[in-house]
């Protein structure tokens, strides 16, 4: 099964990025062979809708599931309509997160686990666009 993990780096020992839309790297992993490939998340710099852009990228990779820390409302809607399962609450290394997934220890997110703009840091009242 092909899954995608939101990651801070390009190896299996990299830490899981809790943000889906604004993680720097997607690690695409074959859960049977544990072979993996890193793809940069081109949506990281999007002013708006990073989660939707990221979902579009993941859908193009033909992944069946996404493992991340949290997922926002737009990304959740986009991934769900693309038939991609979402598992949240992952932390630690990517390798650890995949093991947890394989052992059924990650929860499937039936809805968004955070509000919009979760992954955007340092925006106070200057959020206005």
């Amino acid at each position: 099964m092909k899954i995608v993990v939101s990651s801070t780096g390009s190896t299996m020992d990299s830490a899981v990025d809790p943000r889906f839309g604004r993680c720097p790297t997607f690690l695409i992993i074959d859960t049977e062979t544990m072979s993996h490939e890193a793809v940069s998340n081109t949506s990281i710099g999007s002013a708006h809708g990073a989660g939707i852009g990221a979902a579009q990228s993941v859908a193009k990779l033909n992944a069946k599931a996404v493992i991340t820390g949290n997922v926002g409302p737009n990304a959740h809607m986009a991934l769900s309509s693309a038939g991609i399962e979402i598992y949240t609450g992952a932390s630690g290394s990517v390798r650890n997160a995949v093991e947890m997934f394989k052992n059924g220890k990650l929860s499937k997110a039936g809805r968004a686990t955070v509000g919009g703009h979760f992954g955007q840091s340092g925006r106070g009242r200057g959020r206005r666009t």
């Binding site: 708006h48 939707i52 852009g53 579009q56």
Partner: peptide
């Protein structure tokens, strides 16, 4: 440029 459209498989949102 604003990710307002999402198209995958036979779904357009």
């Amino acid at each position: 440029q604003f990710n307002a459209l999402f198209v995958v498989g036979e779904t357009a949102m």
